[in-house]
Amino acid sequence: MNKFKFLLITFSLLALGLTVVNAQDADSLMKTLNSNVMPAPVEAVFKATRVVLSHSSETQKKHDLDLRIRHHFGDIGGKFGSAHTLYGLDVASDLFIGLDYGVTDDFTVAVGRSKQDELYNFSGKYKLLRQKSKGGMPVNLTVFAQMGWIAREPFSESEFAQYSDRFSYFLQGIISRKISSRLSLEVTPGYLLRQNPSDPEDPNNLFVLGFAGRMKLTRRLSFIADYTLVNGLSRPADLVTDYYNPLGVGLEIETGGHIFSLNFMNSEYIVENNFISNTKKSWNKGGVRFGFTISRNFTLFKSKNKDPDKQSKIY
């Protein structure tokens, strides 16, 4: 009796097991098929090539040209602000027009021109490492190099004694990580080489350390912020001129091809070669100002892919 019972139970268990396995069959085959998925690069760490003031780790897509127009208004408060200047809106402390072009998906060249110092900037930006999902590379590493050329007339005889004094160079490493689909953070150590600082005690070359982040609020709207440490690193603390560390916050709105960025920051200037060394306004003393960027992407060349299933067409 005991043996018979045991046998019966075993058989029923076996039968049951078989049906369960059979029912899962398609799913288990599917699982085996998809078991060795390769780590994929993480896309869209930031929406744009800039955060507020500083560069993000993003580069332009291949053959895409980005036209950027940026505006920094005057002080909202303090001596130069208030209702007399409509809280700074009467003043243009700096204007910038620039073009960023993606030579490849990883390499972008750019040119721009600022109102401040009539500064022309030429830059290259290269994505060295890309963050990957599923235990791959944990961070993105982008390197950025920019040359600035001051085109304005000298203010005094002694300024720009040598023509090379008009040039400045900025080198930066951008290490970023998309922590979640909403939050991306970056650290940006950089080095600025320049001539003729306006404060004679200020060193020619400055080591800086920047921090920036993006928090997506909705699919198309993000909160962005960045802060650059200049004081307290290689700059002496007892300068005659008061310099401040640039801090910017803002909202970034993306509408498929356009990016609008609305910001508040204490820095008067737009390009690194200017704002790192010369931010003389403070958030505490009404020196904060409104600024915005309009960015528009153009696809310059039609892709040469012959795959008819991929060819998009604009009528």
Binding site: A40, E43, K61, K62, R219, G256, N297, S303, Q311
Partner: peptide, 24 residues
């Protein structure tokens, strides 16, 4: 019949469009 696709593997002519497709 089971068919599955990792939607990120869809390739577009224009990379920016691909990014918008995935993100937005």
């Amino acid at each position: 019949v089971v068919v599955q696709l990792a939607v990120k593997t869809l390739e577009f002519d224009r990379k920016l469009m691909q990014e918008h497709f995935n993100e937005n």
